[in-house]
Amino acid sequence: MSSDLDRALDEAVLAAKSALTRCTTVDDWEAAATAHLGRKSAINGLLRQIATLPTDQRGPFGKRANESSRTLTAEFDARKADLLANSLAAVRDFDPSTPGVALRRGHEHPVLAIRREVEDVFVSMGFRVQDGPEVETEAYNFEALNIPSHHPARDFQDTFWVDDPAGRRLVMRTHTSPMQVRAMRQFGAPLRVIVPGRVYRNETADATHESAFHQVEGLVVDRGISVAHLKGVMAAVLGRLFGGEVAVRLRPHYFPFVEPGFELDFQCRFCAGAGCAVCKGTGWIELLGCGLVHAHVLKAGGVDPEAFTGFAFGLGLDRLTMMRHGVEDIRHFHGGDLRFFEQF
């Protein structure tokens, strides 16, 4: 009995080894492995019989059969690794210069992308981000900002007026600045807030003008806020936005809602201040209007101008975006042409 089993085991091992030698491909190997090591293989049958043997035969045969099976398995595994490894070098079937299979990619609006970058920098510095109404009252858009109806400054802001059946005096906001007063009324002082959003001017569109564009308003109200703080915060923010140190300068300018008022220029990045076509030879690029918040505006916001001071700024995003990407026509931003958006 025992010798029959032993012979059967020897034959099975021999057959398995011989089959393994004949394998030249992974497919051959799969077939051989199934036939000689699989559930229905001769060896597997012998292993199952061990349990049925008389106790005295079980030990020696069992040991031998298990050992043979382990050895065979190891040989099969080694052979498979060889076959897999050898199969790789055979045929070239990949061109690294062919573009990969693309998944559908989305596109961020380039102006909104910059807007979000700006938001992130200010949030990292502890600013709130607020949104505000685009149809605004004349009172918030002008009067509360120290721009009464007869004021010459209104000439610079061609305004869309709303034809309101209820007779309310409403405008499409001409700037994000009305939110200065709204934010102060809502949150009081001290306050750090930015207001990104779309603003409107009654201007016929051409390559460099649009009737709608994007601004980010900023407002800091606290005790002892100074021009030095305005410069410090703006330099820090621009450093983050543009990378590296950014030289800025304040030029006196007039905005009715700040006193003193400035325009902030940054040194041209294209020529490092030497003067080029981008900066029109001046070495500086006009970026935003800013200043210390006018006492009238603080009062309109319910903040005591003796106790608190503040600075405010209004940054236009569209021109910045055009400069960054070299966009030649501002109308693309509201144009809905996918050939434009697919580039971002």
């Binding site: 909104l112 499409m172 709608a212 509201h334 958006f341």
Partner: peptide, 8 residues
């Protein structure tokens, strides 16, 4: 999706 803006 592409993010777009239209006029108000």
């Amino acid at each position: 999706f592409a993010e777009v803006l239209s006029h108000a």
